[in-house]
Nucleic acid binder design. Structure first.
Length: 451
RNA sequence: GGCACCGUGGCGGAGUGGCUACGCAGCGGCCUGCAAAGCCGUGUACACCGGUUCGAUUCCGGUCGGUGCCUCCA
């Protein structure tokens, strides 16, 4: 079990992972609001935290990964009205699509995927505690959090409360005692078709309280790692942290991890920017292997470029690993190659640096190619952390059909007759049928042309 | 304007106070009938200007440029 360091947004420094209970790690990663289908950018945190979990497990930790879905929200109400369906039907449908789309990544599911609607008791209880402590106040059915009550407010996102822009008031802002305050609970409004009863009135939760409640319920206060996209640092995570601090007198999480944005032409991919590629389309186009390699090509905190070039480069990487896989056999790898495998894992232990880790994986690959056929143990171990061990298994799809094999034999006869023109003609015909001919010491073989 | 971060060779992208990752593409070579794949070799890269230092791409200050957040956003 290596010592693992991760960058903590709150302190801005690398922090050693020190589980409350030795060997056990809880991770809470903020998931999407389900009001439409997710795009490739939304998949980055899903991938980052799924792979982090794999790495920690590889290191011997018992990991619980929680990733919530927000299924009650203004956007959902609005989208449901537009589409003429109930908000709960829409949320259920989009939640199902979210799970289906992320299943395309073949990384398994998080251990828990809580919903707002099924966590209402915990949410209401947490708000009640904040009210009891006077860290929140009710106003005409709304409940607001007293931001200035939390002396450490702003410490996660490094903002000074006194310098923060005052939120521009919507029609109900006058209910706030301080413009910085934010809603824990919103009184039900016309057009909203879901609501819950509470001592302070009928309504539904604000955005931030759900995560404080669900994370605590499933992982306990003070759990190890809280993650999400860097665009959630403020206000979402700042507010989550403040709520739990004021209700429990303890920090919600030990380490706050934030992944960088996926960029399209140098700009964040986001629904609000309108430059999105749906995840299921990206998987169809790039392939899940290529997509994972693309994500791993950059450090998780840095932006990732999603472009023709980076997609092609990721595809080339996938081909290279598959190519090496053809040479390997199942079994232990040479001891002297372990240094690359160890360096790979060391890089991951140092703020989960997948880009640096990959460099060591490539070194292992080059050495294996040079030796021509060694045991696959190390490579399989590295790829497993990245969710790519499948690259070592026989390529999917059927093998060459009878017609292709007949052509290959004919080509072999042509070659023996030194009829190069005919041999090349047949090779072209095979290429057209999707097969690359590769002449080797043991004769020719057919390799399926990669997409 | 405030906060956070970034500017690395054709592209992507790590990293480090001195020993110049890694991948893709290109070029040369080996292998091959020719290819393919693989291997070997190949690029005076670290935005600009000052400062600290024996020495800075790496530390400090400034300039310019970019990104994210400051409102829903992974």
């Amino acid at each position: 079990m290596r010592t693992i360091h991760l960058h903590d947004t709150a302190s801005g420094a690398l922090t050693e992972l020190r589980p409350r209970e030795p060997g056990k790690v809880g991770i809470y990663a903020c998931g999407p609001t389900v009001y439409n289908r997710i795009h490739v950018g939304n998949a980055r945190p899903f991938v980052v935290y799924a792979l982090l979990k794999r790495f920690l497990q590889q290191e011997g930790y018992d990991v619980t990964l929680v990733a919530n879905l927000t299924d009650v929200n203004d956007k959902i109400y609005a989208a449901a009205v537009r589409e003429g369906v109930s908000s709960s039907d829409l949320a259920r449908q989009m939640g199902d699509l979210y799970r289906a789309d992320t299943d395309l990544l073949e990384l398994g599911r998080p251990d828990h995927e809580p919903l707002v609607t099924t966590s209402m008791d915990a949410i209401i209880a947490l708000i009640a505690e904040l009210l009891r402590r006077d860290a929140a106040y009710a106003a005409e059915g709304d409940v607001y959090f007293r931001v200035r009550r939390d002396a450490r407010y702003g410490s996660l996102s490094h903002r000074d409360v006194d310098q923060m822009d005052q939120g521009e008031g919507d029609d109900r802002s006058s209910l706030k005692q301080d413009p910085l305050d934010f809603a824990l609970w919103k009184a039900t409004k016309p057009g909203e078709d879901t609501a819950w009863d509470t001592p302070w009135g009928r309504g539904r939760p604000g955005w931030h309280i759900e995560c404080s409640a669900m994370a605590e319920e499933l992982l306990g206060v003070g759990f190890e790692i809280h993650g999400g996209g860097s665009d959630l640092v403020f206000p979402h995570h700042e507010n989550e942290a403040a709520q739990t601090r004021c209700a429990r007198d303890r920090e919600l999480a030990q380490i706050w991890m934030h992944n960088g944005m996926l960029q399209l032409r140098g700009e964040k991919m986001a629904k609000s920017v309108g430059n999105v590629t749906p995840l299921h389309e990206a998987v169809a186009e790039v392939g899940r292997d290529g997509l994972l390699l693309l994500f791993c090509g950059a450090h998780y905190r840095q932006p990732v470029q999603y472009s023709e070039e980076t997609i092609e480069q990721a595809r080339a990487g996938v081909r290279r690993i598959r190519e090496t896989g053809r040479l390997l056999h199942a079994g232990p790898s040479p001891d002297d190659l372990a240094t690359h495998r160890d360096a790979f894992l060391d890089a991951l232990a140092d703020d989960f640096n997948t880009a640096a880790a990959l460099a060591h994986l490539w070194s292992w690959v080059r050495e294996a190619n040079r030796r021509g056929g060694v045991g696959d143990e190390h490579l399989r171990q590295m790829l497993a952390v990245l969710g790519l061990e499948n690259l070592l298994d026989a390529a999917g799809g059927d093998g060459p059909d009878a017609a292709a094999l007949a052509l290959l034999e004919e080509r072999q006869r042509a070659r023996e007759a030194r009829d190069w023109a005919r041999a090349d003609e047949i090779r072209d015909a095979l290429a057209a049928a999707g097969w690359t001919v590769r002449d080797g010491a043991d004769g020719a073989e057919l390799i399926r042309v990669e997409a």
